[in-house]
């Protein structure tokens, strides 16, 4: 029983991921959308696909597991957001001021 549901999870994750990959590639390939709209579609699809992979492939969940693991993952994600967001913010601001 558990085997079947776990098998179905991987297949489900794969189908969702395929869909979430196909949409942004299609948008860029056919140039169906442009500028900020296309960027928004790519960004949203990427974010949802990361969540899909984390849930269906890495089995990260908020329940039924030791909390340390989840805290570790959330903390690393926070560090990531600060690093990437901070770098882009500071340097694009600097870039702007130097022109």
């Amino acid at each position: 029983m558990e085997k079947h549901s776990e098998h179905a999870q991987y297949v489900m994750g794969f189908i969702l991921a395929l869909l979430l990959t196909a949409i942004p590639f299609w948008v860029v390939w056919t140039e169906a959308l442009a500028g900020m709209r296309a960027a928004a579609v790519i960004g949203v699809c990427a974010f949802v696909q990361v969540v899909v992979h984390a849930h269906f492939f890495l089995h990260i969940s908020t329940s039924k597991q030791k909390r340390e693991d989840l805290e570790l993952i959330l903390f690393a994600t926070l560090i990531m957001v600060i690093l990437i967001g901070g770098t882009i913010w500071i340097l694009s601001n600097l870039h702007h001021r130097m022109h």
Binding site: V28, G35, I42, A46, Q49, V50, H53
Partner: peptide, 17 residues
């Protein structure tokens, strides 16, 4: 594979917009 999602979205698709 998760890192690759970031790469194809930010680098390749973002670069070709």
């Amino acid at each position: 594979d998760i890192i690759w999602i970031g790469i194809f979205s930010v680098v390749f698709l973002g670069g070709l917009l």
